[in-house]
Every structure is written in C-alpha cells, then in structure tokens.
C-alpha cells in the first residue's frame, strides 16, 4: 500500500523519475519493492505475476485429478509432492505480487470472479495416467522455457521467486519425461496411452508461448523493461527444437504433418497451431474452464467457515493476552 502512495505522489507526469528508471533498467539494475517505478511497470508486473500465481493454483487441479489413482506408491508420492509444489509456487508468486501493493485476497477475488486470466493449458482435461507424463514433459517443459529468462527479470522479488520455482519445475519436467520413458518402453496399451497423451498435449503446449510476435500486445514494453527477454516465437522455436528429439527418443510421433528438420537453419519447421481454439479457450470456451473455476470457488466457499473460525480464535487469544 505504501508503494502505491508513492506512485500517486510521483504521478505519471513525473518524467524525470521515469527517465531515471528507464536508465537503471537498461543498465540491468534490479528494481526492488520500495523503489520508485512507473505506474505502468507496476501494473504490468501485477498482471503478469498474478496470472502466473493463478496458473499455479488452478494447475493443481488437472494433476490432482490423478493422485488417488496413481498406479504405484512411488508415482503417487511423486505426484502428490508435485501438486504440493504448485501450491507453494502459487504462494511465492502471490507474495511477490504483494510487494507491489496488492493483497492476495484482492487477486484471488479477481480469479474467483472470472476477471483474471490464468494459463489456458489448465483448461484441458487429464484423461489418462499418461497425461501426468505428458504434462510434466511438455507443460512443465514449456513453462521452464518461459520462466528461465524471468529469473533475470528486472523486478527483484519476481526474479528471486522464479529462481526457486524454476528449480522445482525442472524436477517436474524430468519426472514427467521419466513417466513417458516408462510408458513408451511398457506394454502396447501403455505405449498407446503415451501416444494419445502426446497427441492431445502437443498443440496446447505450443500455444503456451502465446500468440505470434506480430499479434502480441504487451511484448515491446515488457522487453524494454527487461520483464521479457525473448519473444514468444523465439521461445516456441526453442521448445520445438528441444522437444522433437525427445519424442524421437521415446519412439512417439509428434502430431504435426508439417514437421521437418531444416538442415540449412538447424531448426525444426513446424505447422501452425489452431489459434481459433487458443482464443476460444481464453474466452472461457475450453473443455474445462467452467469446471476449474467452479472447483476453485467451491473450495473457497467451503473453507469460509474455517477461515472465519481461525480468525475468531486468534482474536479471542489476543483479547485474553491483553486482559
């Protein structure tokens, strides 16, 4: 709240402050919570960090869906720990957003009201156990590509949260890939399960990098402010280049008839994702949007009496101490 007051005093018109800020950021200096910053920088960060936090919290659902059916106790422990990690990521990120002068409650209210966005990938259903492999391999893999550059983000609290998170995400990625290796070396039914999961998760994973650079609205300023380091298309290309050889190693077919290796460039050429589907899922028309939000709202509502009780009890304790 304190830092918001600073902004108001500075006003958008305070060009000297803004110019000094731009210089610092251009020089790769870190911005900290109590530093002066342009209102638009603050706003961009709050939007991005809170969307990221919401994604972690909503992301608990598709994987939580398989904890109770995990096919071995070892896998169950790994999956349980992973879903728990995602809750932890959500908490670090809400805490990072709070350093910018918003409260977690406000942000969660936006999520519950349906006015905040979260990663569209979590609006797809997890239909088989192989989806636990595919999500770790592809979704955590794509998340890492997106997030490693954020460890160098100009905003210090976000950058530090991302360093912690990226370490855990790379565990998740390896564990997911290990599930895929086991399935692809397993029975015929297990191989078919792995291929089906790749078929369903491939294109949504590519869309995690966002629209083409030519259509991305916030990119230029975010690049200048060192919030973003690489463009959406650059990261997507990098992901495809890393992931296709892994699919080959698994003996699985990437569901893209246009996919080929270009000797001249040393990169894979790949087909166009279905952007109309991407936009539909963002609009709320994905297979699980309504379900994910309803689940979050139910958990929140069911917990209301518990949170009230905890508050009431704490207040009684405090009153007793004073008395």
């Amino acid at each position: 709240m304190y830092s918001q007051a600073l902004d108001e005093r500075d006003g958008v018109a305070d060009e000297a402050v803004n110019a000094a800020f731009e210089q610092r950021v251009a020089a790769e200096e870190k911005v900290e919570a109590n530093d002066r910053m342009p209102a638009a920088y603050r706003k961009t960060l709050i939007r991005q960090i809170s969307q990221h936090a919401h994604s972690e919290i909503i992301g608990m659902q598709p994987e939580g869906n398989w904890i109770t059916r995990a096919p071995s106790l070892r896998r169950k422990a790994i999956l349980l720990a992973k879903v728990q990690d995602e809750a932890g990521h959500g908490l670090y990120l809400y805490a990072a957003a709070e350093t910018l002068g918003v409260s977690r409650e406000e942000l969660v209210d936006q999520l519950l009201a349906g006015t905040a966005k979260y990663s569209s990938i979590f609006n797809y259903p997890t239909l088989t156990w192989a989806d636990m492999g595919a999500i770790g391999w592809l979704v955590d893999g794509a998340a890492i590509m997106n997030q490693i550059p954020l460890c160098r983000c100009s905003y210090g609290p976000y950058a530090r949260a991302m360093m912690r998170i990226c370490k855990e995400e790379s565990f998740h990625q390896r564990q997911g890939f290990e599930i895929m290796v086991t399935l692809s070396r397993g029975t015929e039914a297990q191989r078919a399960m792995a291929q089906d999961a790749l078929n369903r998760w491939w294109w949504p994973s590519l869309m995690m990098f966002g629209p083409h650079d030519s259509e991305s609205t916030h990119s230029d300023t975010s690049m200048r402010w060192k919030i973003k380091r690489f463009s959406n298309d650059e990261l997507r290309q990098k992901f495809v280049d890393v992931t296709v050889p892994q699919a080959d190693f698994l003996g699985l077919a990437v569901p893209d008839p246009d996919l080929r290796y270009d000797d001249a460039t040393g990169h894979y050429v790949f087909g166009e994702p279905d952007w109309s589907e991407f936009k539909a899922v963002l609009r709320g028309e994905g297979p699980c949007n309504a379900q994910r939000l309803a689940h979050r709202r139910r958990a929140h509502d069911d917990g209301a009496w518990v949170r009230e009780a905890a508050q009431a009890h704490a207040a009684k304790q405090q009153a007793e101490q004073v008395a």
Binding site: M60, L80, Q84, A87, H295, A299, V306
Partner: peptide, 19 residues
C-alpha cells in the same frame, strides 16, 4: 488427506495436508 489437494480451506492448508 491427498483427496484434499486443491480443496483445502486455505492454500497454506493445501500444502500442510500435502506434507
């Protein structure tokens, strides 16, 4: 307890029950 994951009354409790 694992059935509580993503259903707990607070995010902190999701983590505690997971632990």
């Amino acid at each position: 307890l694992s059935e509580w994951m993503s259903n707990a009354p607070t995010m902190e409790e999701d983590i505690a029950l997971g632990n």
